[in-house]
Design a protein around this nucleic acid. Structure first.
Lengths: 217, 217
DNA sequence: CGTCCTCTTGACCTAATGGTCAAATTAATT
DNA sequence: AATTAATTTGACCATTAGGTCAAGAGGACG
């Protein structure tokens, strides 16, 4: 999974592979292990030994691939926002407004289901003040939100969507969908323990919620 | 604030004060400082020295009042769930359904505004698997949710509320409201930096959202 | 005002943890 | 096969952090 989170230095110029076979494999294993660990216990709660163990390496060997614990964390975070926002980017100004938004919410829910670790990693980062991600949030994220909020506002102005605050609408979609990843243990504890069935219910609920709230009178 | 989170041993039998004036003051200061610290940096990211410093005590002195870091954390968590669920408890089966739910959501939002630290403390706990709170979640919380879900289901059966999944409805209220506390830095980074004005907007948005989605056709 | 109990602290201990390093081992390359 | 470069690791180090302890300072009260 963290494949998506790894910056590939040489995407434009495949001059020198730079990454040997072994390197690629081990970096990969480290990021995978770290994602697991960080999502579970947070940055401070995760030890290098634990990551190394999960990755099947010795600690010094891990540090041969990443300069520090921070570096591992940073590598994970680097690609995360992009990955996370892909569905929002895909929201099409030329589509049918209600469908676009419902689709967005459902895609986001699906991501929460398939990538709960990424969601938790992100949640932890924001919860503790976004020390690493602030620039990306204030830059690209804000730009994207501004853009899409404008699209939604347009739809509303055209009467194709019941009027409400576009930004808070987006927040509510983030909140309701990520909730199923970030508060997973709580959700599971409060529902019957049928395997992931609740994601289907959640999808139905959210579709109903947003369809009712946004379909123009 | 953590006054509410402190277990008062002697509520029924005021036999022995047990708590001296100094004790009350210092325990209080410690919990207040710890709430700040834990909410900001999480359990593992918070040091006893930091708490002691914030509380204006020496570390050994802090440990005179609480046996361990765990104990401080536990003391904070102990009262938290009760405090957190008070608004849901207040939801009245005899009230007007839509109003009851909208009121609940708005109360919850208000709590997120007034007690963001408590919200973050809770979020961190759940995010990392609820190691301390699981019993309370599976016990009292689940019971309360079951009870209120039944009330909501009743309302829906009576046609006084548009039908949908009651539990997921509750989750959505938790998610959308707590989002403003837990993801505060993100919310602020994406909106104009007007002081807490966004809580008013959020209230309007949420009221609209739930009113539209729940008012029977 | 002396005694007992509460409170406070400086010094100290130990375990955990992030990180280093030189030496050894293994893969590439010629 | 030899040489070079990449990879791996055991031993080590320094710092941090949770927690202890014995002794001292402060308060309550007969």
């Amino acid at each position: 999974m963290p494949e998506d989170l790894m910056r590939d230095e040489d995407s434009a110029e495949p001059k020198k592979p730079r990454q040997t076979r072994i390197q690629r494999k081990n970096r990969q294993a480290i990021l995978e292990a770290a994602l697991d660990a960080f999502a579970e216990a947070g940055f401070r709660g995760t030890t290098l030994d634990r990551i190394a163990e999960k990755a099947g390496l010795s600690k010094p060997n891990l540090l041969y691939y990443f300069a520090s614990k921070e570096a591992v964390h940073g590598a994970l975070l680097d690609g995360l926002l992009d990955l996370w926002l892909a569905p929002l980017r895909a929201m099409d100004a030329d589509g049918e407004p209600v469908e676009e938004i419902v689709t967005y919410a459902l895609k986001k829910l699906e991501m929460a289901r398939v990538m709960p670790r990424e969601s938790r990693l992100f949640a932890g980062e924001i919860l503790h003040g976004a020390p690493h991600m602030m620039p990306e949030i204030e830059g690209p994220l804000r730009a994207l939100v501004d853009e899409k909020a404008a699209v939604i506002a347009d739809w509303m102005a055209q009467g194709r969507l019941a009027p409400t605050d576009p930004r808070h609408l987006i927040f509510s979609i983030w909140a309701t969908t990520q909730h199923y990843a970030d508060f997973d243990v709580q959700v599971r504890a409060l529902l019957q323990p049928k395997r992931d069935e609740h994601f289907t219910q959640a999808a139905q609920f959210l579709e109903t919620l947003y369809r009712r709230a946004l379909t123009p009178a």
